[in-house]
Simulated assay, not measured.
Amino acid sequence: MKLVEQLPAYGQHFFKVRDKCGLPWLLAVGGKGLHVYDYNDLKVPRKEFLWKQINDLHHKEKKFVMTVG
C-alpha cells in the first residue's frame, strides 16, 4: 500500500473532458487540487492547479468554469 500511495495519480478521480477546441483531456480531482492530463499519459500532468490557486469554480449543465488567480 505504501508503494501505491506514492504514485502521482493516487487518490484522484478522473473525468473525461474536452477543451474549447474539442480536444480530449483527463481532469483529475484530488486532495491537492485539479490536474489536467493528456488522454494517453497519466504519469505527468500537463497542468496543475492547487486548491489555494483557484478563486472560483462552478459548472452549468455540461460546462465547467474555473478562475485561477
Rank of each mutant, 00 (worst) to 15 (best):
M1K: 10
M1I: 07
K2C: 10
K2E: 15
K2P: 12
K2V: 12
L3K: 14
L3C: 04
L3M: 07
V4P: 05
Q6T: 13
Q6L: 14
L7S: 11
A9R: 07
Y10F: 15
Y10P: 05
G11E: 13
G11Q: 07
Q12P: 03
Q12F: 09
Q12G: 14
H13V: 13
H13D: 11
F14G: 14
F15H: 06
F15Y: 14
F15R: 04
K16S: 14
K16V: 09
V17A: 10
V17K: 03
V17H: 02
R18Y: 13
R18K: 15
D19A: 03
K20E: 04
K20G: 08
C21R: 04
G22Q: 03
L23E: 13
P24M: 11
P24Q: 15
W25A: 02
L26F: 10
A28I: 12
A28Q: 08
A28P: 10
V29W: 01
V29N: 01
V29M: 13
G30R: 09
G30L: 12
G30P: 04
G31I: 04
G31Y: 07
K32L: 05
K32N: 07
L34E: 05
L34K: 01
H35E: 10
V36G: 02
Y37N: 06
Y37F: 15
Y39F: 15
Y39A: 13
N40I: 11
D41R: 04
L42C: 08
K43W: 12
K43M: 09
V44K: 14
V44H: 14
V44R: 06
V44W: 07
V44T: 14
V44D: 06
V44L: 08
P45F: 06
P45C: 07
P45K: 05
R46Q: 12
R46T: 11
K47W: 09
E48N: 13
F49Y: 14
F49G: 00
F49H: 02
L50H: 08
L50I: 00
W51E: 05
K52H: 10
K52N: 08
K52I: 05
N55H: 09
N55Y: 03
D56H: 02
D56L: 00
D56E: 11
D56I: 00
L57F: 12
H58M: 01
H59W: 01
H59K: 02
H59M: 09
K60C: 07
E61N: 08
K62I: 08
K62F: 08
K63S: 02
K63Y: 03
F64T: 03
F64P: 04
F64K: 00
V65L: 00
M66G: 01
M66R: 00
V68F: 06
V68L: 10
V68P: 03
V68H: 01
G69H: 09
